[in-house]
Amino acid sequence: MSAHDISLTVNGEAVREAVEPRRTLVDFLREDLGLTGSHVGCEHGVCGACTVRVDGAVVRGCLVLAVQCDGARVETIEGVSDSGAIADLQNAFEKRNALQCGYCTPGMLLAAEELLAAGGTPGREKIREHISGNYCRCTGYEAIVDAIEAVVQARGGRK
């Protein structure tokens, strides 16, 4: 099938590429743009390792086609790391050892940030519910919940 030209911004940078319609967003980011921080875990929308932001909302990178992102604003873990937007969350993850192999971590951080960005002071149960679509095989989740909870308290409900 013929490739489609798409224009979008990725981490604030204008990108113009030709993509096959079958290219998923996460494969596009990883293989065409070299942004390998978004990971491929299951390719059927269950594990959350491919979590990225499209137009401000967190989505599964394996369940969105790159061709659908023409005109979109895409943000990945590399972008939010470099902007410093989640530095406090990353610090909390490091301090609490809330990652082991690190494969789920970019998705987990973006998922957690969506909850944090909504403001309020969610408790442990709400935090657990919110990250319940992101699979981590290593930690048993408690350290992740602890780290997010610490940032909830540090941010004090500010949006």
Binding site: P21, T24, E43, H44, G45, C62, L63, L65
Partner: peptide, 21 residues
């Protein structure tokens, strides 16, 4: 294709093979 949250898994697993979306 609308949200794609059920269709794209089927595409990825080659369980659905439309000629056009």
């Amino acid at each position: 294709i609308a949200g794609g949250q059920s269709l794209v898994p089927l595409l990825n697993m080659r369980m659905a093979s439309p000629a056009i979306l």
